[in-house]
Simulated scan of single mutants.
Amino acid sequence: MKSSLLYTAALLLSGGIAVPAMAQDTAAPATAQPASPASPAAPASPATPAAPATAAAPTSFTDAELVGFAKAAIQADKIQKDATVAADAKQEQMLAAVQSNGLTPARYNEIAQATRTNPDLVKKIQELASADMATQQPATANP
């Protein structure tokens, strides 16, 4: 059971879910507009610090956020696949799953986006989620 949950989390991390797509769409135009006017200035100033700043951003996630992300992704996947839940209700329930795991939709989206380009982050999420599940199981087994 534990390995199937981790597999589901890994699958979700690589593909994303509907909740992240909604918030990303609202943030994307804001970053795309300034890029156009800045294009002519880019060759004049070959600044490489921008690349390390984007590489460093994914490491700013706390372990608690990453565990919450994995749990929310698993819950959202179950909601998405549940044929008994109406399409309108699915979005609300997935949003509630994200929030109940201590994340805002924007923060969830940041993590989801980072997992698409950072395989080390995906590994870290899997390790943290596995450790979290391992600590929860003995607690329920021993009253």
Rank of each mutant, 00 (worst) to 15 (best):
K90I: 01
G68L: 04
A18W: 10
P119Q: 15
P119C: 09
E92G: 04
A41R: 06
D88K: 06
P34Y: 04
E65G: 02
Q80L: 13
A89N: 07
A18R: 13
A44Y: 00
K2G: 11
I111H: 02
I111F: 08
I125L: 05
L121S: 01
I74S: 03
G16W: 00
S45C: 07
A50M: 11
R116T: 10
K2A: 12
P138S: 06
P46S: 06
S45I: 12
L6G: 07
M22V: 03
K123P: 02
N109W: 03
A89L: 15
A112H: 08
Q75G: 01
A87L: 07
A10R: 11
A89P: 04
P34E: 10
Q137I: 11
I17E: 13
K78H: 04
E110Y: 08
D25L: 11
P52T: 05
A51D: 05
E127S: 14
V67P: 08
A47E: 04
Y7T: 01
S45P: 00
A134K: 14
A87Y: 13
D132F: 02
A32M: 14
A18L: 13
A96G: 08
E110N: 08
D88G: 12
A114Y: 01
N118V: 10
A134R: 09
A89S: 12
A73M: 04
E65L: 04
D132W: 02
A96E: 10
I111W: 09
A50W: 08
S14G: 09
T26G: 00
P20A: 11
A141H: 10
D25R: 05
Y7D: 04
I79W: 00
A30K: 07
Q80H: 04
A21E: 02
T54D: 09
A42L: 09
T26K: 07
L103H: 03
P138F: 13
N109G: 11
A73R: 06
A114P: 07
T84Y: 05
S130I: 10
A51L: 10
K81H: 06
T54K: 12
F69C: 02
A106R: 04
M94S: 10
A64K: 12
A72R: 02
A28K: 06
K90G: 01
A106T: 06
K78N: 08
A86W: 02
S60L: 13
T48V: 14
P43E: 03
L128H: 00
A57S: 04
L95K: 03
I125K: 08
D132S: 03
A23Y: 09
I74R: 00
L66Q: 06
